[in-house]
Each structure stands twice: as C-alpha cells, then as structure tokens.
Design a protein around this nucleic acid. Sequence first.
DNA 1: CACGTCCATGTAGCTAGTCTAAATAATTCA
DNA 2: TGAATTATTTAGACTAGCTACATGGACGTG
Lengths: 304, 304
Amino acid sequence: MDVQRLELLRELADRGSITAVALATHRTPSAVSQQLKVLEREAGLPLTQRHGRGLVLTDAGRALARSATDVAVSLAKATALWDEFRNNATGEVSLVTFPTAGQMLLPGVIKNLGPGLVLNCADEDPELSDFPALTAEYDIVLAHSMSGQLSWAGRGLTVVPLMTEPLDVGLPVGHPLADRAWVRPSDLIGETWIGVSDGYPFERILHAIEQEAGAHLSMAQRFADLALIESFVIAGLGIALVPRYTSSGGQPGRLVLKPLRGIESQRQIVALMRPDRAERLAVRTVLDALRAQALQVQHSHTVK
Amino acid sequence: MDVQRLELLRELADRGSITAVALATHRTPSAVSQQLKVLEREAGLPLTQRHGRGLVLTDAGRALARSATDVAVSLAKATALWDEFRNNATGEVSLVTFPTAGQMLLPGVIKNLGPGLVLNCADEDPELSDFPALTAEYDIVLAHSMSGQLSWAGRGLTVVPLMTEPLDVGLPVGHPLADRAWVRPSDLIGETWIGVSDGYPFERILHAIEQEAGAHLSMAQRFADLALIESFVIAGLGIALVPRYTSSGGQPGRLVLKPLRGIESQRQIVALMRPDRAERLAVRTVLDALRAQALQVQHSHTVK
DNA sequence: CACGTCCATGTAGCTAGTCTAAATAATTCA
DNA sequence: TGAATTATTTAGACTAGCTACATGGACGTG
C-alpha cells in the first residue's frame, strides 16, 4: 500500500487524465499508468475504466482517492509540524486571485512576508474560470461567493473565509442621491444600471432590489473591468454596484459610494485550497498574512 | 518526505533501539540506521542522540514520531476502507491476553469469526508484562484496569472497553456467609484471605475493605493461578476475591460466590492497540466479536 | 472514410534508491 | 581486560520505478 501511488490516484481524481497527472508530477504518462496498474492489482478491484479515449474513476477509485486525501493531509501536517520545529516557514506558495481582491490584498501581504517565503501570484478572470479546478494548479485560490451561500462546499476543499466586502451603490458626483448617508431599494427606481461582471453577485442583488422596490430596473451595459464601469458612472451614464474597498470612491473627482440598506449587499472573499496544501506551514503563513491584510483594509475603511 | 522512513522512526519510538526495529521490520540494523540518517538529513535537525550504546529520540524526534502515527492511522483507514469495499475482512490478527480473559472470551470469538480471518492468540502473565509495550508485538492486547482508572491513557494508544467484570468473594460451601445473598466489608472481618495475582486489582479492593470495615485483614497465600486459588478456598483454607464470570463458582461441589456490597469491586477488561492497527478492518472485526462475546458472557450470568 | 490527433498502455533498458554483508567504533558488564 | 551489545560505515548487489519508444483504440475533420 504505497502512498506515492495513492497520491497519483488522487491527482487523477482531480485532473481527470493520466496525461495531466503525468504533466503535473513531472513524469511520463507511461510511468503514471504503470503505477496505477500496480495499485489496482494491489487493490484487487478496478479503480478506473475507459471512457472514450480517456478514462474515469470507478466508485471504488473515487472512494480510495478520497481517503488518499486524508493520507496527504496527515503527511502535510507532519511536514508542517517539523517546519514549525525549525521555525522554517519558507518555500514557494502559488496563488491565483480575481483582479479586485488581488489589488486590495496582495501588495500588503507580499510586503509583510518574511524572507525565504516567495509568493507567486497570478490572476484569472472570475467569469471564465472554475475556481475549484484551479486548486489543482495553485496552492491558494482567492474566490468570492455571495454572503452565506458557500458554493464551494462539498468538493472536499478547504475553505477559509478572509473577509466580507460590502457592495455599495456607485453614483456620479452631483447625483440627486449623492448627499444621502445611505440609499434604499425604493430610492433606486428609474435609475439606469451599469452591470458588473458575472464574478460579482450582481444579478442576485439586482433582483433583490427589484423585489424589494417592486419595480423593474434597466441595465444599460455590462463590463468586467471595474475601472471601466467607474468611468461610465462618473460620466453620468448610469449607476453601478461596486465593491467598497476596491473602488476609487472617496477620491476627489471620482464617484460617490452609498451603502445599500434594506437588503444584504456584500460578497464573501474566501481562500480555496486542497486540504493537504492548506496544512503546509508556508501556506498557513500566507493565509495568516491574507487575513491580517483583510482586517487592516476593513479597519482603514471603517475609521475613515 | 517518505512514509516508510517515518514509520521507521515511529517504530524506534515504540521499541527503543535500532536493532529491535530492524528485527520487527525484517531488515538489518544497517538499513534502519541508514534510512533514519536520511530522514534526519531531510528534517534538518537531529532526531536521535546517542545514549550509552543505544540511542534515544530527541524532542523533535518524538514529535515527528507522533505525527508519523497520524500518517499511519490515515493509511490504515484507507486500507480498511477498500477492504470494506471488497467485503474482505481477512488476514491475520495477533492477540495477547491474560489467562482469565482468554478463557472467558476467546473460544467463543474464534468460533464466530468468518473464514479467512485467522486469530493468533497468546497469553502473557499479567504480573510480569507491561501491557502497553506488548502493543508493539501484537495487534490486540487484552488488559485490565481497576474501574474508572484508565491506567493506559496518555501513551497514544487506542483503548476499547470490552466489559466490566465484578470481583466477588469466593467462599467454601458451608461457610457461615454462604447462604447470604451478598456480603459487606464488615462481614469479612477476621477471615483469612488467599491473595490473587497482582494482575487483579486485588490490593486496592482489599485496602478498601479494610478501610470500610475498620479492621486489618490477614492474607495467607498469594497465587497467580485462579484454579489454585479456588482449590485453596474449597479446602477451607481461606476466602478470596475471584472474577465472577471466570471462576467455576456455581458448579456443584465448587465454591460459592457472593457479591460484595458497600465498595466497588470490579475490573475493567479493555483492548489496547496501536491506533493504526485499530483501524484495520480485520482487527475491527475481531474487536466487534470480542464485544459481542463479552456481552453474551455478561448476559448469560445475569439471566442465571 | 481515411487521416491526423489524442490518450492510454505495453516493452526494453537504465538509474537511483534501498537492501545485505562485513568491518569498525563505542559502550557496558563481568 | 575481554566478551557482548549496539550503532554506524563502506562497498556491492538487487530491484522498483523511470524514460524512450512503439502500439492500439477513439474521436474529429476535410
């Protein structure tokens, strides 16, 4: 009963093809195939079965892969333990983020990391990418979900909440509502909206506003890039839901943010990880820094 | 970070010497020494240090060995899971017992085990042996402790309670107390006692009786073998504390058992195991059979 | 429908890691 | 001091697992 082989099975469960596993583990597909065959012979029952030109796991294979995760976790814990023993939170950690979270958190995090710990960051368009799938490639995946609703649960991934960010209504300077302390759904009847990317829980909140206000809202445009959206709002072409900490609201000459009362308008920013990777000391250190930075961002906004 | 090497470290923690580990793992001491050296180099800090002609683990070594146990447990769980998948509770399970528990439980257990599951039993004198140490050699160690007091805790072993057996006062037929339903400590003043082996919590209960009755008790003999003790009691040479389910009490012409009231007089029979071995499907199956048998023994005695 | 592509697997040979065997060093016990 | 016990070192053998290459289905496409 070899751990290496179990690990390969787990990778197969995550990546779906021998070739992908081989690529990820720096081996030839032949080597992977051979090892899985040995595992299957040891197990005494088929773990994979052909499906088209690829293959899929059998029920037994999936079950075994699941417990392989537990093995990987306890192994990672052992490694982390002795890294702690040596006070040695070094190594490389890879991270993907969607743009706004990266802009808000990463610079501060990287500044606060000790020497020997390198954080390799990348960004992915939240519209296009399947966040859970990215955990195969990256140690940490920054994702967001609507408040409460944990869309990431149930796949065996570790989810660490980092912060909740309010989504405010962005208005142009001089807008009739601009001198209010906050706005309510009913205030927003008749406005033209600039839609944001699918990555934000925009649709949900828009529908909630419609339901609350009892009227239909019209959407003029739909953009992914926040700066683009802001420029439209500033130009008076509509209003938009923008994340409070990431927008340029508050700066002179830019747009004005108003909290939305009466409905819950926020997004959860979380870190998604494979359970075993979450145990690595270096990863946990980065996670701590992320949480600290998130707290600081929130704090600096409430004080202001 | 190799599991095999971690396993070796764990064995070293359990067995205390390279030679013992080598013997247990069917290797030469040289191989073990080399592997541990590699592990130590990977770890980056000393895991062992010389002590006389042998060696002892450092703090780091012990810590690492502990987490190695977790790894072994999750691995054993994986193996068990797929054994369940195949409905395959087969293999060999080794067990040591002290004589009375073996006599009471093992015949029934072995009868009820399915084919393909072999249970290799041995017995050890409870006086001479260190029960926890036996878990290195045997999958299951049947041990006993005084009620409540879990003397086996804290060593990282899995403890599964099997039954609690009352310790009754054994009297010769025709003894003045023989027609009573039960006896109390004060009834026993002036009697001569036949001491049982240290394996039973004899001393404790004897002291409790003395304290309760407020008098000193005299002990005539001290034997380990229950049959021998019984023969002395039957011959009228004294009375003794005997385990209710194991003695021959109740059979015609033998001795008479009387429950002891006023103090707690019983022993706990438990199974001791290394955590990883406790996860094996075959071991769990044997354990289930042990519990069932224990229940049946208790039941057959309460009905009668 | 034949061709190129993609994916898994089989075969042969090489390499690296792990074992044994025997010698060495250090310590304890008699 | 000599015998016994224990860990370690070294050299050499063995073997598990890898790569390179070839094979054989399955899919899509001109």
